[in-house]
Write a protein that binds this DNA or RNA. Structure first.
Lengths: 183, 183
DNA sequence: CAATATATTTGCGGTGCCTCCCATTTTATG
DNA sequence: CATAAAATGGGAGGCACCGCAAATATATTG
């Protein structure tokens, strides 16, 4: 979409907060009214992208063989669905913008919350539950936390190489720590 | 503070979004300008509270005997510092408001991020590191996730009884799951 | 007590995000 | 070509928030 491209470019050039909706609209020669018809908010230009992966992610979790642990199911789903779809350039721009803007972080975390609920629900479904129990929720929270750390680490290395490596490392570290935590 | 009381009351009565700063200011007979002198933003009326616990939390983590695991140190610090200071009424009002408002959730998560960094830094310091390594960050993420789940569970039970019980349960569940995850 | 220095508070204008409504243009359809 | 449907634009307005300069209260002196 043209609006998205122009917006991301302006954000990269002059920062997210410093870019007004009016500027973005002018760049694509539309009115601000039309802008808000396509994106519910300025922040959504950056973030609405991510939600697209949720259905596949859910499906991958549900379809994962029930013999394995919940955590493994989530890890596998992320590697199968999210990792291949991750675009370094877009991730970098979005990552920078999110890091620099409070309100963007707000929306980003809002999205994470949706993921949390989606993952927890998928885990529940995988085990034949109506709604997520404590185990599902905690697993989802931990998995998401580890995943976020992997993305952060990826970013701190300049978004080079694949995210897959970072995801692998983060989950491996979690499993290693788990041995310490288990009672 | 009077402003805070009036604001929380209005939020509870008519919702967070539906309450304007002007109303709050009028209630305490000050101007909106003065309101923003005391609180950097409308959302901060609800959230600025929590940050007060951070220094003690950090101290408790650092002081915890190094023989125990990082996770235990965080768990103990939360139970020692946060749990006794938790006010059910305030938690309930704040919880409701946060659940109902996107922008409040934004600020709330922003706060969580500060906690994450604070806890990770404290864990690093406890082990004599300059800055947090992957282990510290992942532990902090997991611990915060579990803690948030405990607070959520507390809320879903009407903020009755102590949070302590919920915190205990959530961490116990994590340790149980850890046995499954360990490789 | 009076005069002066110092905070604190206030009003006001302005910006930016975002919403609602209605008129107008464009596009698709028969 | 006419008619319906969809996309667009403009304008008014609300709210959070900022910056500034005036006004008010408070404290400190002579």
């Amino acid at each position: 979409m043209m609006i998205e491209d122009a917006a991301l470019r302006l954000f990269a050039e002059q920062g997210y907060e410093a870019t007004t909706v009016e500027q973005i609209a002018a760049e694509v020669e539309i009115s601000t009214t039309t802008f808000f018809r396509y994106f519910p908010s300025k922040a959504d230009v950056i973030l609405c992208h991510q939600d697209a992966n949720m259905p596949q992610l859910r499906a991958a979790i549900i379809a994962y063989p029930p013999g394995e642990s919940d955590l493994t199911a989530v890890e596998h789903a992320i590697k199968q669905v999210w990792v291949p779809n991750a675009d370094p350039l877009h991730s970098q721009r979005a990552g920078q913008a999110v890091a620099a803007s409070v309100s963007l972080r707000g929306l980003y975390n809002e999205m994470s919350r949706n993921w949390l609920e989606g993952i927890a629900a998928a885990l529940a479904e995988r085990r034949g539950l109506r709604e997520p129990d404590e185990t599902a929720i905690i697993t989802a929270r931990v998995a998401l936390g580890v995943f976020n750390e992997a993305v952060r680490a990826w970013g701190s290395k300049g978004y080079k190489a694949g995210v897959g490596t970072e995801v692998d490392r983060a989950f491996a570290r979690l499993r290693q720590l788990s041995a310490e935590w288990a009672n």
